[in-house]
Computed example of a mutant assay.
Amino acid sequence: MPRTSLDPAAVAAATARLVDVVRRAPEGRQPVHTCYVPADEVTAGTPDEWGAQALAALAAHAPTPADLARVLDLPVESAEVLHAKVAAKLAAEPVEDLRIDFEDGYGAPPTEDDDAERTARVVAGWLAEGRAPARFGLRMKSFDTAALRERGIRTLDVFLTALGEVPANFVITFPKVTSVAQVEVLGEILDLLGGDLRFEIQVETTQSVVDDRGRLAIPAFIEAGRGRVSGLHFGTYDYTAGCGLGAAHQHLAHGACDFARHVMQVSAAGRGVELSDGSTNVLPVGDAVEHGWRTHYGLVRRSLAHGFHQGWDLHPAQLVTRYAAVYAHYLDGARADAERLRAYVSRAGGTVLDEPATAQALSSSFLRAVDCGALDAAEVRRITGLDPAGLRALARRS
């Protein structure tokens, strides 16, 4: 055995200073979207109503695969598959994640206590009947001012008191964060409320990307959350307005948004914190359904290409293009990705020599495809030779 000049005791002493980071993954699968619904509009039937409205939009504006192909500029053979899969998803599980909104979409009506208690009872009903979305929660008011802080904390207290036991798939969205102190205070409030409460930070201020000393702000936010931060959600319009962009340039494809998203990615990497892209306010309504669909479809595909697997949806008709874009993303590359994964597992080589990190990404992609319904486990096994357990083993390999 070759000798080295390093003293083993000195090496042990040096490495003992390293502290493992606790990486706590969010509960369950990551949803492909979050639907934001103003609290005063939430009823027991909201998820089903969103699905029914999305199916009605599909029937009215793209009743056949050929219509879908024309609207979204898709190959007809791809549209045949997508149309059937999207319709099935909208009928079975239209909403994967729902946020009861007590912030911008809600305002400050005098009935907020009543709406907090009522919507908590709605959620309790979903849970009792086994028909709650895979993930759900509420968006509280920001800590911008003393009045908003007081109102947001009170709403959270009223809601959670009325709900009782909080399920693992419940999450709080914390908007317009500007400082570590705000995150610390929310964490202290959640300590007082008890339970294993987790929250998403909305990255929608310039201070939430770069702090006043020129440092990346998000890593400190995550640390201040003491394990409670489950996600980072981008806020398109507050952020672009904060950057001084005019209304015509406030959109997800702007370079300013790309910068913020890249900061979110590098800040959250390896921390068990999920990422979600923002929304588009170009809605598929009235005479602009096709324009709204094309805009939304293109932005969702762009987000997926940038590594953001989740985004906001603001209108039921956007569910059509949310699932069309997500499914097309996974289906378009499925065969080529499967060949690369098979070659990696068999060590058979090929035209591409993949690293373990790429195998992780490939297997994670197939797991996401199964989770959302783009592919089923049997299809994935047929093309990759791997069952879900085998894919998970590759996805978790470090």
Results as ranks from 00 to 15, higher is better:
Glu49Gln: 13
Ala9Tyr: 03
Ala92Asn: 09
Ile201Cys: 02
Tyr106Arg: 04
Leu216Asn: 03
Ala146Asp: 15
Gln360Leu: 04
Leu375Asn: 03
Leu82Thr: 11
Ser364Lys: 09
Val380Asp: 05
Glu103Trp: 15
Met1Leu: 08
Ile222Lys: 11
Thr161Phe: 06
Gly373His: 06
Gly231Thr: 14
Leu375Ser: 02
Lys89Leu: 00
Tyr330Phe: 13
Glu27His: 14
Gly152Trp: 14
Phe234Leu: 06
Arg131Thr: 14
Ala378His: 10
Leu68Arg: 02
Val71Asn: 07
Asp196Gln: 10
Phe159Val: 04
Val11Arg: 07
Gly255Gln: 06
Val11Asn: 02
Asp73Asn: 12
Leu55Gln: 14
Ala10Gly: 11
Gln202Cys: 15
Ala305Ser: 14
Pro47Glu: 05
Ala134Gly: 12
Ala79Ile: 10
Thr64Pro: 05
Leu216Trp: 06
Gly214Met: 12
Asp7Trp: 00
Glu165Met: 01
Val37Ala: 04
Ala54Met: 10
Asn169Asp: 09
Tyr344Val: 05
Tyr239Thr: 01
Tyr330Val: 05
Phe174His: 02
Arg29Glu: 13
Val19Asp: 00
Thr206Lys: 06
Asp115Lys: 11
Cys243Asn: 06
Leu275Pro: 01
Ala108Leu: 09
Tyr106Ser: 15
Thr351Tyr: 07
Gly227Ile: 13
Arg70Trp: 06
Gly194Met: 09
Val380Lys: 02
Ser208Arg: 09
Gly130Cys: 10
Pro167Arg: 04
Thr161Glu: 14
Glu150Ser: 15
Ser78His: 01
Tyr106Val: 03
Arg261Phe: 14
Leu232Arg: 01
Val158Met: 03
Asp211Arg: 08
Ala395Gln: 00
Thr240His: 03
Leu72Trp: 08
Ala217Ser: 11
Leu245Phe: 13
Val32Ile: 12
Asp258Glu: 12
